[in-house]
Measured scan of single mutants.
Amino acid sequence: MKGKVVSYLAAKKYGFIQGDDGESYFLHFSELLDKKDEGKLVKGSMVHFDPTPTPKGLAAKAISLPLE
């Protein structure tokens, strides 16, 4: 699924993505496929991810940034 980063707290390594389906997904650095892309996780960045339901809500897994 595609989505847009709505927040990312680099110090805490987490944030949120708004998916194309309108839902909010929890984003964690550990799910970023290329850790070098962390600096690109800023508000408004477009990402691809696997939407995954968890006991705490919806989460983004296997997060990647589109090729530039």
Rank of each mutant, 00 (worst) to 15 (best):
Y25M: 00
F29K: 06
G15R: 00
I17N: 00
L41W: 01
G19L: 02
E31K: 05
A11Y: 11
L33I: 12
G19T: 04
F16Y: 08
D34C: 11
M1H: 06
G15Y: 03
K4F: 14
L67E: 13
Q18H: 11
V47Y: 01
G44Y: 05
A60F: 00
E23H: 14
D21Y: 03
K13L: 05
P66S: 15
L58Q: 06
F16L: 06
E68N: 12
K2R: 13
L9E: 12
I63E: 01
K56G: 07
M46Y: 12
L67I: 12
I63F: 01
T54C: 08
P55G: 09
L41R: 00
T52E: 12
A60R: 00
L58Y: 08
G57E: 01
G22V: 02
F16C: 07
F26I: 06
F29E: 04
M1G: 07
S45A: 15
F26R: 03
D20V: 10
S24E: 09
K4A: 07
M1E: 04
L67Y: 13
A11S: 13
H48Q: 14
Y8K: 02
L65H: 04
F16Q: 04
L58R: 09
Y25R: 00
H48R: 12
K61I: 09
P53T: 13
G3D: 00
P53C: 13
G39Q: 13
A11G: 10
V47D: 01
D34V: 08
P66V: 15
D34N: 13
L32I: 06
K13N: 05
Y8W: 07
V47M: 03
A62N: 15
M1W: 04
L41T: 02
L9T: 13
K4P: 02
E38G: 06
K43R: 11
T54M: 07
Y25C: 02
P53N: 13
V47C: 03
A60L: 01
E23C: 13
F29Y: 15
D34K: 06
L9Y: 15
K2L: 10
E68W: 11
F49Q: 01
V5D: 01
Q18M: 14
H48K: 12
P51Q: 04
F49S: 01
D21T: 04
G19N: 03
D50A: 13
Y14K: 04
G19C: 03
I63T: 03
V47Q: 01
D37W: 08
G15A: 02
G19S: 04
P51V: 09
Q18L: 15
Y8V: 06
P55E: 10
L27I: 06
V6R: 14
T52Y: 15
L67Q: 13
E38T: 05
D50W: 15
D50I: 15
P55I: 10
G22H: 06
Q18Y: 11
A11V: 11
Y14S: 05
V42D: 05
K36I: 07
P66E: 14
H48E: 12
A60Y: 00
F16A: 04
V6D: 06
D20N: 09
K43V: 11
P66G: 14
S64Q: 09
S24H: 11
K40Y: 09
L33T: 08
A59L: 13
K43N: 08
Y25L: 01
D37P: 02
